[in-house]
Design a binder for these strands. Structure first.
Lengths: 110, 110
DNA sequence: GCCGTACTACGAGAGCTATCGTACAAATCC
DNA sequence: GGATTTGTACGATAGCTCTCGTAGTACGGC
Protein backbone atom coordinates (compact mmCIF):
# COMPACT_ATOMS: atom_id res chain seq x y z
CA UNK A 1 0.00 0.00 0.00
CA UNK A 2 1.24 3.47 -0.73
CA UNK A 3 0.68 6.91 0.72
CA UNK A 4 -0.29 5.96 4.24
CA UNK A 5 -0.19 9.19 6.13
CA UNK A 6 1.32 9.15 9.59
CA UNK A 7 -0.34 10.65 12.67
CA UNK A 8 0.18 14.38 13.11
CA UNK A 9 -1.47 17.21 15.02
CA UNK A 10 -4.41 18.98 13.41
CA UNK A 11 -3.92 22.62 12.50
CA UNK A 12 -5.58 23.84 15.68
CA UNK A 13 -3.47 21.57 17.82
CA UNK A 14 -0.12 22.94 16.71
CA UNK A 15 1.60 24.73 19.59
CA UNK A 16 4.15 27.49 19.08
CA UNK A 17 6.29 26.18 21.93
CA UNK A 18 6.39 22.75 20.32
CA UNK A 19 7.37 24.21 16.95
CA UNK A 20 10.15 26.28 18.49
CA UNK A 21 11.35 23.33 20.51
CA UNK A 22 11.37 21.13 17.44
CA UNK A 23 13.45 23.64 15.51
CA UNK A 24 15.80 24.38 18.42
CA UNK A 25 17.84 21.25 17.65
CA UNK A 26 20.63 21.68 15.09
CA UNK A 27 19.88 18.36 13.37
CA UNK A 28 16.19 19.11 13.04
CA UNK A 29 16.80 22.67 11.92
CA UNK A 30 19.01 21.28 9.19
CA UNK A 31 16.30 18.86 8.12
CA UNK A 32 13.75 21.66 7.94
CA UNK A 33 16.14 23.87 5.99
CA UNK A 34 16.82 21.15 3.45
CA UNK A 35 13.12 20.45 3.03
CA UNK A 36 12.53 24.15 2.47
CA UNK A 37 15.30 24.37 -0.07
CA UNK A 38 14.12 21.42 -2.11
CA UNK A 39 10.43 22.30 -1.97
CA UNK A 40 9.46 18.69 -2.56
CA UNK A 41 9.01 15.46 -0.68
CA UNK A 42 12.23 13.86 0.45
CA UNK A 43 12.98 10.45 1.90
CA UNK A 44 14.83 10.28 5.21
CA UNK A 45 17.78 8.68 3.54
CA UNK A 46 18.19 11.75 1.30
CA UNK A 47 19.65 13.61 4.27
CA UNK A 48 23.27 13.34 5.19
CA UNK A 49 22.96 13.68 8.94
CA UNK A 50 25.67 13.15 11.55
CA UNK A 51 23.59 10.64 13.51
CA UNK A 52 22.49 7.04 13.12
CA UNK A 53 19.33 5.86 11.42
CA UNK A 54 17.39 5.34 14.61
CA UNK A 55 18.25 8.82 15.85
CA UNK A 56 17.16 10.19 12.48
CA UNK A 57 13.82 8.45 12.88
CA UNK A 58 13.48 10.08 16.28
CA UNK A 59 14.10 13.58 14.92
CA UNK A 60 11.61 13.15 12.09
CA UNK A 61 9.05 12.00 14.61
CA UNK A 62 9.61 15.09 16.77
CA UNK A 63 9.18 17.34 13.74
CA UNK A 64 6.03 15.52 12.68
CA UNK A 65 4.47 15.56 16.14
CA UNK A 66 5.17 19.26 16.47
CA UNK A 67 3.33 19.87 13.21
CA UNK A 68 6.38 21.07 11.28
CA UNK A 69 6.42 18.29 8.69
CA UNK A 70 4.01 15.78 7.19
CA UNK A 71 5.04 12.23 6.38
CA UNK A 72 3.61 9.38 4.37
CA UNK A 73 4.88 6.01 3.32
CA UNK A 74 5.71 5.43 -0.29
CA UNK A 75 7.06 1.99 -0.93
CA UNK A 76 9.84 1.34 1.53
CA UNK A 77 10.49 5.04 1.86
CA UNK A 78 9.03 7.62 4.12
CA UNK A 79 8.47 10.85 2.30
CA UNK A 80 8.54 14.09 4.27
CA UNK A 81 7.64 17.65 3.45
CA UNK A 82 7.17 20.87 5.36
CA UNK A 83 3.67 21.95 6.39
CA UNK A 84 4.52 25.44 5.17
CA UNK A 85 0.95 26.44 4.37
CA UNK A 86 -0.40 25.26 7.71
CA UNK A 87 2.32 27.03 9.63
CA UNK A 88 1.86 30.17 7.54
CA UNK A 89 -1.82 30.14 8.43
CA UNK A 90 -1.16 29.82 12.13
CA UNK A 91 2.02 31.86 12.47
CA UNK A 92 2.55 34.09 9.43
CA UNK A 93 6.20 34.67 8.70
CA UNK A 94 7.49 32.49 11.50
CA UNK A 95 8.91 29.58 9.55
CA UNK A 96 10.41 31.90 6.99
CA UNK A 97 12.00 33.99 9.70
CA UNK A 98 13.58 30.98 11.34
CA UNK A 99 14.84 29.47 8.09
CA UNK A 100 16.22 32.82 6.95
CA UNK A 101 17.97 33.16 10.30
CA UNK A 102 19.45 29.73 9.86
CA UNK A 103 20.79 30.62 6.44
CA UNK A 104 22.22 33.85 7.83
CA UNK A 105 23.98 32.01 10.63
CA UNK A 106 25.24 29.39 8.24
CA UNK A 107 26.61 32.10 5.97
CA UNK A 108 28.53 33.74 8.82
CA UNK A 109 30.25 30.52 9.80
CA UNK A 110 33.65 30.10 8.18
CA UNK B 1 26.65 50.36 43.23
CA UNK B 2 24.16 50.59 40.43
CA UNK B 3 24.03 49.38 36.86
CA UNK B 4 26.34 46.40 37.14
CA UNK B 5 25.82 44.54 33.91
CA UNK B 6 25.63 40.77 34.07
CA UNK B 7 27.59 38.41 31.81
CA UNK B 8 26.05 37.74 28.42
CA UNK B 9 27.19 36.46 25.04
CA UNK B 10 28.70 38.93 22.59
CA UNK B 11 26.78 39.55 19.40
CA UNK B 12 28.85 37.10 17.40
CA UNK B 13 28.41 34.41 20.02
CA UNK B 14 24.63 34.31 19.89
CA UNK B 15 23.42 31.00 18.46
CA UNK B 16 20.10 30.58 16.71
CA UNK B 17 19.52 27.20 18.33
CA UNK B 18 20.07 28.74 21.76
CA UNK B 19 17.65 31.57 21.04
CA UNK B 20 14.98 29.16 19.81
CA UNK B 21 15.53 26.90 22.76
CA UNK B 22 15.26 29.82 25.16
CA UNK B 23 11.97 30.92 23.63
CA UNK B 24 10.56 27.40 23.39
CA UNK B 25 9.55 27.45 27.04
CA UNK B 26 6.11 28.94 27.79
CA UNK B 27 7.33 30.83 30.85
CA UNK B 28 10.26 32.38 29.00
CA UNK B 29 8.18 33.20 25.95
CA UNK B 30 5.80 35.04 28.23
CA UNK B 31 8.66 36.98 29.77
CA UNK B 32 9.94 37.98 26.34
CA UNK B 33 6.45 38.97 25.19
CA UNK B 34 5.94 41.18 28.22
CA UNK B 35 9.31 42.83 27.76
CA UNK B 36 8.44 43.51 24.13
CA UNK B 37 5.07 44.96 25.04
CA UNK B 38 6.44 47.33 27.64
CA UNK B 39 9.48 48.41 25.65
CA UNK B 40 11.32 49.36 28.82
CA UNK B 41 13.39 47.76 31.52
CA UNK B 42 11.42 45.64 33.94
CA UNK B 43 12.34 44.08 37.25
CA UNK B 44 11.82 40.36 37.66
CA UNK B 45 9.19 40.96 40.28
CA UNK B 46 7.10 42.87 37.71
CA UNK B 47 6.15 39.57 36.11
CA UNK B 48 3.32 37.49 37.43
CA UNK B 49 4.71 34.07 36.66
CA UNK B 50 3.30 30.73 37.75
CA UNK B 51 6.60 29.61 39.28
CA UNK B 52 8.63 30.36 42.38
CA UNK B 53 11.31 33.02 42.72
CA UNK B 54 14.21 30.65 42.23
CA UNK B 55 12.70 29.18 39.08
CA UNK B 56 12.14 32.71 37.80
CA UNK B 57 15.82 33.47 38.36
CA UNK B 58 16.68 30.36 36.37
CA UNK B 59 14.53 31.40 33.40
CA UNK B 60 15.97 34.90 33.29
CA UNK B 61 19.44 33.40 33.32
CA UNK B 62 18.62 31.14 30.38
CA UNK B 63 17.28 34.10 28.41
CA UNK B 64 20.34 36.18 29.22
CA UNK B 65 22.83 33.44 28.37
CA UNK B 66 21.09 32.83 25.06
CA UNK B 67 21.47 36.52 24.22
CA UNK B 68 17.77 37.31 24.26
CA UNK B 69 17.81 39.77 27.14
CA UNK B 70 20.28 42.03 28.90
CA UNK B 71 20.27 42.48 32.65
CA UNK B 72 21.81 44.91 35.10
CA UNK B 73 21.42 45.54 38.78
CA UNK B 74 19.66 48.67 39.92
CA UNK B 75 19.33 48.91 43.67
CA UNK B 76 17.87 45.67 44.94
CA UNK B 77 16.24 45.02 41.61
CA UNK B 78 17.51 43.37 38.49
CA UNK B 79 16.33 45.20 35.43
CA UNK B 80 15.87 43.29 32.20
CA UNK B 81 15.25 44.29 28.63
CA UNK B 82 15.21 42.61 25.25
CA UNK B 83 18.30 42.78 23.02
CA UNK B 84 15.99 43.60 20.14
CA UNK B 85 18.56 45.53 18.13
CA UNK B 86 21.23 42.86 18.48
CA UNK B 87 18.84 40.10 17.48
CA UNK B 88 17.53 42.16 14.59
CA UNK B 89 21.10 42.57 13.35
CA UNK B 90 21.81 38.87 13.49
CA UNK B 91 18.43 37.46 12.54
CA UNK B 92 16.24 40.12 10.90
CA UNK B 93 12.56 39.57 11.58
CA UNK B 94 13.07 36.53 13.78
CA UNK B 95 12.13 37.95 17.16
CA UNK B 96 9.21 39.84 15.70
CA UNK B 97 7.98 36.71 13.97
CA UNK B 98 8.09 34.69 17.16
CA UNK B 99 6.44 37.36 19.29
CA UNK B 100 3.75 37.92 16.68
CA UNK B 101 3.15 34.18 16.58
CA UNK B 102 2.83 34.17 20.34
CA UNK B 103 0.25 36.94 20.25
CA UNK B 104 -1.64 35.10 17.52
CA UNK B 105 -1.71 31.90 19.54
CA UNK B 106 -2.74 33.78 22.64
CA UNK B 107 -5.59 35.40 20.76
CA UNK B 108 -6.90 32.06 19.54
CA UNK B 109 -7.06 30.62 23.04
CA UNK B 110 -10.45 31.07 24.68
C1' DG C 1 9.52 -17.69 -1.04
C1' DC C 2 13.89 -15.20 -0.29
C1' DC C 3 16.78 -11.15 -0.18
C1' DG C 4 17.77 -6.28 0.02
C1' DT C 5 16.25 -1.60 1.20
C1' DA C 6 14.31 1.71 4.23
C1' DC C 7 12.69 2.65 8.23
C1' DT C 8 10.56 1.64 13.10
C1' DA C 9 10.26 -0.03 17.95
C1' DC C 10 12.25 -0.93 22.06
C1' DG C 11 15.38 -0.55 25.64
C1' DA C 12 19.23 1.70 27.75
C1' DG C 13 22.44 5.22 29.14
C1' DA C 14 24.12 9.84 29.77
C1' DG C 15 23.07 14.39 30.16
C1' DC C 16 20.18 18.23 30.38
C1' DT C 17 16.29 20.99 32.52
C1' DA C 18 12.26 22.71 34.98
C1' DT C 19 10.86 22.82 39.36
C1' DC C 20 11.23 23.47 44.23
C1' DG C 21 12.94 24.75 49.14
C1' DT C 22 16.23 26.68 52.02
C1' DA C 23 19.86 29.56 52.91
C1' DC C 24 22.34 33.49 51.65
C1' DA C 25 23.80 38.26 49.64
C1' DA C 26 23.17 43.13 48.30
C1' DA C 27 20.94 47.39 48.46
C1' DT C 28 17.57 50.56 50.55
C1' DC C 29 14.92 52.47 54.28
C1' DC C 30 13.94 53.39 59.08
C1' DG D 1 22.46 48.82 63.14
C1' DG D 2 18.22 46.23 62.00
C1' DA D 3 14.43 45.20 59.01
C1' DT D 4 12.71 44.79 54.39
C1' DT D 5 12.94 43.96 49.61
C1' DT D 6 14.79 41.62 45.75
C1' DG D 7 17.10 38.40 43.78
C1' DT D 8 21.07 34.45 43.80
C1' DA D 9 23.29 29.97 44.99
C1' DC D 10 23.04 25.40 46.01
C1' DG D 11 21.25 20.93 46.31
C1' DA D 12 17.71 17.71 45.18
C1' DT D 13 14.32 15.45 42.32
C1' DA D 14 11.62 14.08 38.60
C1' DG D 15 11.15 14.07 33.90
C1' DC D 16 12.58 14.73 29.40
C1' DT D 17 15.72 13.96 25.35
C1' DC D 18 19.54 12.90 22.38
C1' DT D 19 22.08 9.23 21.38
C1' DC D 20 22.92 4.49 20.30
C1' DG D 21 22.49 -0.70 19.24
C1' DT D 22 19.76 -4.52 18.25
C1' DA D 23 15.86 -6.60 16.59
C1' DG D 24 11.94 -6.32 13.82
C1' DT D 25 8.48 -4.76 10.08
C1' DA D 26 6.95 -3.40 5.45
C1' DC D 27 7.61 -3.12 0.75
C1' DG D 28 9.67 -4.24 -3.81
C1' DG D 29 12.43 -7.16 -6.89
C1' DC D 30 14.12 -11.72 -8.12
Amino acid sequence: MADTQLPEPALAEIRLAAVLHALADPVRLRIAAELARDQRELACQAFDLPVTKSTTTHHFKVLREAGVIRQCRRGTSRMSHLRSADLETLFPGLLDGILTAHLAEDGRRD
